[in-house]
Simulated scan of single mutants.
Amino acid sequence: MTTHSSGDRPHVLVLGAGYAGLMAALRLAPHARVSLVDPSDRFTERVRLHELAAGVRPDVSHPLSHFLRPAGIEHIAARATGIDPATRTVTTDDGRRLPYDRLVYALGSRTAPAGERAHTAETAAGLSKRLQDGPGSVAVVGGGLTGIELAAELAESRPEWRVSLHSEGRVGSGFTPRARDHALGVLRARGVRIEQGRRIAEPDSVDADEVVWAASMVPNTELAAAAGLPLDPSGRVRVDGALRSTAFPEVYVAGDAAAASSARAGALRMACATAMPMGSHAAASIISEFRGREPRTFDYGFLTQCVSLGRREGLVQFVRADDSPRDRFLTGRPAARVKEQVVRSTVGLLRIAARRPWVIPLTPGMS
């Protein structure tokens, strides 16, 4: 890339300070003037929200300044309210119009709305306070990884509460039968009542004092749709192999908002495991463009599905590149340690990116 002075360096706006957005911003910092737009001044470890809900940890966030300051990234503490790809500007809720040369859309996803009565992972702090007023009954709706972790953590850390787990399909459907049986056995040993094969349309149909909704995720792509970025049937933004919008190549999309795929994995599911590599690849693609090169196609393959089953138990399901389960899996304390190390490594990698971004492309799974 040609050396630019601080006045004529290309300007990249990054929307969203989650796993994908923060990784993209940190990787881009040595190559462009980077502004990160997010109303919060903290980075939240979303994969630890079940621990916050259960009261295991009082806080699962970190000051954004710890990552941004070493990298020289500007934090714009505002919410993006509009994108105009024609003029390459973003408007914010405080009245600013922010120009960009490239835009990284990384606004992630949220739990699908289920009414005012239900708690979600996003309201974990409020749920934790409510559970301090126990005892009572709490129902977790959703048999995926988030629901399993929530049910196990609540049952172990809040024994005064009667915990149930409800799933329209099989709980842990992505596991092999033996691994799934192990997870169910741990849940039942914690006292969790498991109900499968019944669709719950709304929280009021569950007989429990409190309901935690973990049934489905929806991408935060309303802003993208309003700007004219094409979406796929799931509501995620259509992108090419470099993670550029198929309609506006100056706009890159990373994380849960992107309808991304790879030759090895096929369509990628929403997950922290995919968000950070996508954020890194979006940055690598932009850097290639600034250097006058065509970006490489995103390549990704899954390795494991890791789930915590409380503080002393876990399950690590080894998977093929396309996320289908292999016969091998790890359980017990070793699996719990692996899961904890995986979670810690995400923040560790972001800290490395803040100070030594050139290391990130050398990290397995990162572009």
Rank of each mutant, 00 (worst) to 15 (best):
S261D: 08
V211N: 10
R102K: 11
A225W: 13
P357Q: 04
A214T: 00
G144A: 12
F248D: 04
L131T: 11
Q196T: 07
F43N: 11
A183C: 13
V171G: 11
D204P: 04
V347M: 00
V212H: 00
F290I: 14
C272I: 01
Y19Q: 01
E222W: 09
G147C: 12
V192D: 11
P357G: 06
F302S: 11
L268Y: 13
L28E: 01
D240Q: 08
R117T: 15
S40R: 00
S5P: 14
V141F: 00
R355H: 10
H50K: 02
V251G: 08
D84V: 04
T221N: 02
V171D: 11
T89G: 12
G235V: 13
S109N: 08
E168F: 13
D322H: 07
G266A: 00
E222P: 13
A258T: 02
G266N: 02
E45L: 08
I76T: 06
R199A: 12
V47K: 02
A86L: 04
A71P: 12
P63M: 09
L103G: 07
L349H: 00
D232C: 06
T176W: 06
T89S: 13
G266T: 08
D299H: 02
V347H: 00
V186K: 08
G126M: 05
A354R: 04
S157A: 14
V251F: 09
S261P: 14
L303H: 01
T146L: 05
R199E: 07
R193A: 15
G143N: 09
I352C: 03
A112P: 01
A260K: 05
E45S: 06
E116S: 14
D207H: 06
S324I: 11
V90S: 01
R355M: 10
R344A: 15
A77N: 10
L52T: 03
F43I: 04
R236H: 11
V138Y: 05
H31N: 07
D204H: 10
P135Y: 09
S288D: 14
L103E: 11
L309H: 05
